[in-house]
Amino acid sequence: MSPPLLAVEGVTAGYGRATILDGIDLAIPEGGGLALLGRNGVGKTTLIRTLMGLTDRTAGRILWRGRDVAGLPAAERVRLGLGWVPQERRIFRTLSVQENLEVAARPGPWDLARVYALLPRLAERRANQGWQLSGGEQQLLALGRALMLNPDLLLLDEPLEGLAPVMVDVVLDAIRELAGTGLALVMVEQHAADALELTGHAVVMDRGRIVARAGSAALLADPARIVELTGL
């Protein structure tokens, strides 16, 4: 039996002396989808950053297709197939949309034409500078830029946060289409229903630990349970 795409085993991590994550275990199969739920400040973003190698890990292993990558820098992890759309988007403000997309492009099925086909708004704005985009367009750009890395697993950290309703639909449609292509997803989202709809499994975090695991469909069908687990 082949190992999962990503496995996290007993990971404890944080920033400096502050421990945020405590003994995290989870696994994501090839093409799988995982919703990461929980209130603000429970460690969801820290978990994503730990997967990227941007926190101080003090225990545990992170296995990529069975290989321990916990000691690798972020750039190496990206080359292996990890893509990250950060909460803050962090697009390059003085590069144009197209330059932002090309800045770290890696060979693979996702190229400019395919990204523009998925996110036509970016094609319309291709010559605009990053600072000229609205928040929603910046989110689309951050998503498109991550796709240009041709990842096997995409980490989406609150991709709908702060977006106007019309842009929420645009971003959700794009993520839905991505999920249909067999790209593995980890989605952190305050709006649990949106994340559950797009993923197969869910974990709920509280105070740096995973406190519940469930199938996304079952959880989606039981809103009371979502409230009970997440407090949202």
Binding site: A75, P86, F92, L95, N100, V103, A104
Partner: peptide
């Protein structure tokens, strides 16, 4: 300046940490 290499240099000038998270060995 208009190549991915040039964009990467400018990306590194603006935000080296972000470039690392995009797989670039700064």
């Amino acid at each position: 300046a208009a190549s991915p290499f040039g964009y990467a240099l400018r990306g590194l000038k603006q935000n080296p940490a972000r470039m690392a998270a995009l797989g670039t060995d700064g």
